[in-house]
Computed example of a mutant assay.
Amino acid sequence: MELDSLFAMPSFINGAARVLDLGSTMNEYNYSDSTIEADQVALAGDWQAVGKDLWKALEEFE
């Protein structure tokens, strides 16, 4: 699972295309089949971020 999977990753091309998207057909969100699945994904992302921060701290203080 990617750390940024819960966030939209916009690009310049997407931004330019949205100017012409008058019907809002380009809106895309991260959906889950259930609230439990959404919570599991969010919790896993949180722990992934904590682990990444811990590894960074360990590398800095070696």
Rank of each mutant, 00 (worst) to 15 (best):
E2T: 05
E2C: 12
E2K: 10
L3I: 11
D4Y: 10
D4P: 01
S5T: 06
S5P: 02
L6T: 07
L6A: 05
F7T: 05
F7G: 02
A8T: 01
A8I: 03
M9H: 14
M9E: 15
M9I: 07
M9K: 14
M9D: 15
P10F: 00
P10A: 03
P10N: 03
S11L: 04
S11Q: 03
F12R: 12
I13F: 15
I13G: 05
N14V: 03
N14T: 13
N14Y: 03
N14D: 15
G15Y: 04
A17R: 13
A17N: 10
R18A: 07
R18S: 13
R18E: 07
R18L: 01
V19P: 00
V19H: 03
L20H: 02
L20W: 01
L20R: 06
L20S: 10
D21V: 01
D21N: 01
D21K: 01
L22G: 03
L22W: 07
G23K: 12
G23P: 00
S24V: 00
S24N: 12
S24W: 10
S24G: 12
T25C: 04
T25P: 02
M26C: 00
M26I: 02
N27R: 05
N27G: 03
N27K: 07
N27P: 00
N27H: 00
E28P: 00
Y29A: 00
Y29H: 01
Y29L: 00
N30P: 08
Y31V: 12
S32P: 05
S32A: 15
S34L: 01
S34D: 05
S34N: 06
T35P: 01
T35S: 10
T35Y: 10
I36S: 09
E37A: 15
E37H: 02
E37V: 09
E37K: 08
A38E: 09
A38N: 08
D39T: 06
D39P: 00
D39Y: 07
D39Q: 11
Q40W: 09
Q40G: 03
Q40K: 12
V41H: 08
V41P: 02
V41F: 03
L43F: 12
L43S: 06
L43C: 04
A44S: 09
A44I: 08
A44G: 06
A44Q: 10
A44R: 05
A44F: 10
G45Y: 05
G45L: 02
D46Q: 13
D46G: 08
W47H: 14
W47Y: 15
Q48D: 11
Q48H: 08
Q48A: 13
A49M: 11
A49S: 13
A49N: 13
A49K: 08
A49P: 05
V50I: 12
V50K: 13
G51W: 04
G51D: 14
G51C: 09
G51E: 11
K52W: 03
D53T: 04
D53V: 10
W55V: 12
W55L: 14
K56L: 13
A57I: 07
L58N: 09
L58S: 08
E59R: 11
E59G: 07
E59H: 09
E59P: 04
E60V: 10
E60H: 09
E60W: 04
E60K: 14
F61G: 07
E62L: 14
